[in-house]
Every structure is written in C-alpha cells, then in structure tokens.
Design a binder for these strands. Structure first.
Lengths: 182, 182
DNA sequence: ACTACCATGTAAATCGTTACATGATTAA
DNA sequence: TTAATCATGTAACGATTTACATGGTAGT
C-alpha cells in the first residue's frame, strides 16, 4: 500500500502539464537517479490515477494525427500529494547493491580477481560521476541562485547534489578498500 | 534473467550448510543492508535450486519431531556461483530513494516543513549509524585481523564498513543541505 | 527514403511483500 | 503456561521488467 509511483507521477504533473511520454523522459533525467519506471508501468498508472480523479487530461494533436494526452493534477490529487510530501519517510531496511552482495562472498575468489572487480566498479562509478558533474555544470548555467531554497531549479539541484555525494563517497570507499588488498 | 536471490542463496550455503530459516536470519544480519528476502520468497527458491541441482539437502531432527532441511551447495552450484562472483557488476540506472524523490518536489511545501523532514531523516539515519557502529565493535572483538583480506570475517567487515560509509556520507549531505535552509 | 524520436498501449513473466496456515522447541 | 523463537510452506496481491504491438513526426 505504498504506491510510490503514484506520488512520483503526482509530483511531476503538479509541476506542469505532462504526457505519459514526458513522464517517461523525466525518469531518464536527474530524478531517475532516485526513482524511475518504464512506460509499461506508467501508462496503466496514469489510467488508474485518472479513474481515482487525482489527475485529468486533455488531448493535444501534433502534426496531422499524432495524439497525446496531457495530464494535470486535480485539487484532490494536490491534496494527496501534499500529505505524502509532509509525511516522514521510513528508512528502507535493505538498500540493495549487487556489488556489495558479491563482496560479502568474495573470499571464495582469488585476491587478484577481487582487485580487478574493484577497479572495474571504480571505473564505472567515476564515469557516472563525470556525467553528474557535467549535468550540474549545465544546470548552473541556467540558474545562478541554484543553491538557494526556493530557486526555480532547487529540486534539480538537490537530487544532483546528492547523486554526486553518493557517487563520491562510494568511490572513496572503493579506493580505500582496494588499497587493503595491496 | 538476473536471479540475484539465486546467487545470494548459493553464496550463503557455500559458506556453510544452512536451513531456509538460517538464510532468512542471515538476511536480518549485516548482509541484509545490501540484499534480503522474506521467507516466502526463500523457500520456493530453495525448492527451485534443488530441482536445478545447484544445492541439495539432508534432513535433521531437533528434539522429538521438528524437522529442518540443511542445504549445501553442489559442484555445479559452486561453478555457477563462481562465474557470478567473477562477473563485473553493472551499475543500476536507478537506486531508489523515497526521501530524495520527495525532496525533488519539496518546493511545493513550506520551508519549515522541509526542515522538519530533514531533521527527521537525520535522526533516523544517525540511529541506524549507531547500530552499525555497535555491530562493528562486536565484530572487532571476534577478530583482530578484521581488516586483512583473507581474515575469517573479512566479508562481514566489508559490508559493515560500506554500510557505515553510506550512512555517514548521507548524514553529512543531509546536514550540509539542511544548513542551506537556515 | 531513412533515422531518430514522439506517442500509446497490452501481455507475459518475474520479483517482492503481506497474509494465511501450521506446528515444535526452549527458556522464563 | 506462556511467550519468543525455530521451522516450513502456500496464496494473493502488488511492483517491475521485458517483450509484443502499432503508428506518427521531423530532420537529413
């Protein structure tokens, strides 16, 4: 009875009118670091939220025939979104990480293989971090007051900032731990 | 076709003979920070792995009638476990975090409410961190050479160490970000 | 013409949680 | 005797992914 996708969609259409395709695109942007869904999950959820009268849509035509449904939030939807936003969030008991699961059993493989796997993971995380730095740079060009609560892009800033912090601290730990093998 | 639970179970029964109940208990310990499953998912998976001849079991009786099935890994199971351990792990596109999803939309609620939610999250993460520190302390009493690769408890050390790093860096970010609101 | 992208949906399978269901053992 | 823990399973539901399925638009 958590229905987090429901609130993710309500939050997005609260910001502005959006199609299912637009929501799918958003989950490929910054917020996708912390929540996402495939279009095959989004379209049925949009239908359900419409039935629940939390959102509604108008139809817009692009070109000659291409139809899209632009969803916006209803007052009832805003009410439920606000309640969710204000509710304290419990910590998940488990934050799954396949690499760490592997490490837990890594006594079963040779030290050299362990080092190789650490190096591979560090390279991948550094690549992702570079991409996050670039995203933050682009965002800063758009908005000088980025770090001020209430600035237009503050939500974007928060997720990028935390995504960077998450990667940086993971990489630091990987590097420090790899050095134990040397 | 990922079947991560399969490898989690193979890894556990590779360490030592174990019942479904024992596996469930393990997921409530350190490794549960990075992977877990409920018993309702574990028992069917044990059945499946047995059919696939990756594990096998003997029956043991406690007291007068209480039966338990003690599973161990087969050579075929060890083979598949090793292949998985040696394979580089892709980064997940999304590492879900409901608190961060909320923050992305938090422009919709008052600054004071934001601060309250940050403080709540910091308190919860600090409480968890204290528990992790205590676990590490207990582990250090068991094993002086903890931080040496190859030490008996090295797998435990790695997961605890990373769990602590993860909480510490999250808390640091939360505190720094909260200060932007002041 | 062709490619990348826009746009929406459904079906099937898998993964994961909550609830249902039962019974034994151990220590206070 | 009663509560906590040991022990194993299934059923129903919900969440998520992969695959199936179709067609339009815009730029080169």
């Amino acid at each position: 009875m958590k229905r987090t996708l429901k609130y993710a969609i309500l939050g997005l259409v609260h910001k502005q009118e959006m199609s299912g395709y637009d929501i799918t695109s958003q989950f490929k942007q910054e917020i996708g670091q912390f929540w996402s869904a495939k279009h095959s999950q989004i379209y049925p959820e949009l239908k359900r939220l419409t039935e629940e009268k939390l959102i509604e849509y108008r139809t817009s035509i692009t070109g000659a025939k291409l139809e899209k449904k632009l969803y916006c939030i209803t007052p009832k939807g805003t009410q439920e979104l606000t309640e969710w936003l204000l509710s304290p969030k419990e910590l998940p008991e488990t934050e799954k990480d396949e690499f760490m699961l592997m490490l837990y059993f890594s006594a079963a493989i040779p030290k050299e293989e362990n080092k190789r796997l650490f190096e591979d993971q560090i390279a991948k995380r550094k690549e992702k971090l570079e991409y996050l730095y670039e995203s933050k740079k682009s965002l800063q060009l758009l908005d000088k007051n980025l770090q001020v609560p209430g600035s237009h892009q503050f939500g974007h800033y928060l997720v990028l900032s935390r995504a960077i912090n998450r990667e940086e601290s993971y990489i630091t730990w990987l590097e420090e731990t790899l050095s134990l093998f040397e």
